[in-house]
Computed example of a mutant assay.
Amino acid sequence: MTDSMEQIIPIGKEADFPAGYGREVKAGKWSLAVFRTTDGRLFALENHTPHAKGGTLSEAIVSGHYIYCPMRDLKISLETGVVQAPDTGSARKFEVRTGSDVVAVVLPRP
């Protein structure tokens, strides 16, 4: 269930997201990096590294429930979006929902 400030946006089928990889997805005004871990879970982060110099996250290396930023080697939790110490920062995380082979994200309403 979503509240009136959220919207559910379909972004693809489960087969569109292979385990161990990230994929860039456009949903509304958002560019998302969607990752499937080897245990089959799906995660979505805003497709922008938290490093001050910027960059995208969709090409990050997946390791367990973490990704390693391809530009700055930041270790980022897929579960929280938080950069792991000794670095700091966070990437915005979005809820992913699945059902009937459809993958969707929960986004704030514009």
Rank of each mutant, 00 (worst) to 15 (best):
F43K: 02
D16S: 05
Y66A: 15
G55Y: 09
Y66P: 02
A44L: 12
T38W: 15
G99D: 12
A52C: 11
T88K: 05
D101K: 00
K93V: 14
L78V: 08
S58H: 13
S100M: 12
P110Q: 08
A19I: 03
A91I: 04
D3Y: 00
Q84D: 15
S4T: 12
E6G: 07
F17H: 02
F35D: 00
M71Y: 15
F43Y: 15
R92P: 01
Q84F: 10
P70Y: 11
P70D: 07
H51I: 00
K75T: 12
V106S: 07
T80E: 06
K26F: 04
T2R: 13
L57N: 03
G28I: 09
T80A: 04
K13H: 14
L42F: 09
A44R: 09
L78K: 06
A44G: 11
K53D: 10
A52R: 13
G54V: 01
S4F: 15
G64Y: 00
L78M: 08
S31W: 09
V34F: 09
V102Y: 09
G64P: 03
N47G: 12
F17K: 00
G22H: 03
G40K: 09
H65Q: 05
P108T: 13
D101M: 01
T88S: 04
C69T: 04
A85D: 14
V83Q: 06
M5D: 07
D101H: 02
I61G: 00
K75G: 05
Y21P: 00
G22P: 00
L74S: 07
T56C: 11
I8Y: 12
K29F: 07
R97N: 12
E6D: 13
P70L: 07
L32C: 11
P108I: 13
E6H: 14
V82F: 14
S90K: 14
I61R: 07
T80I: 08
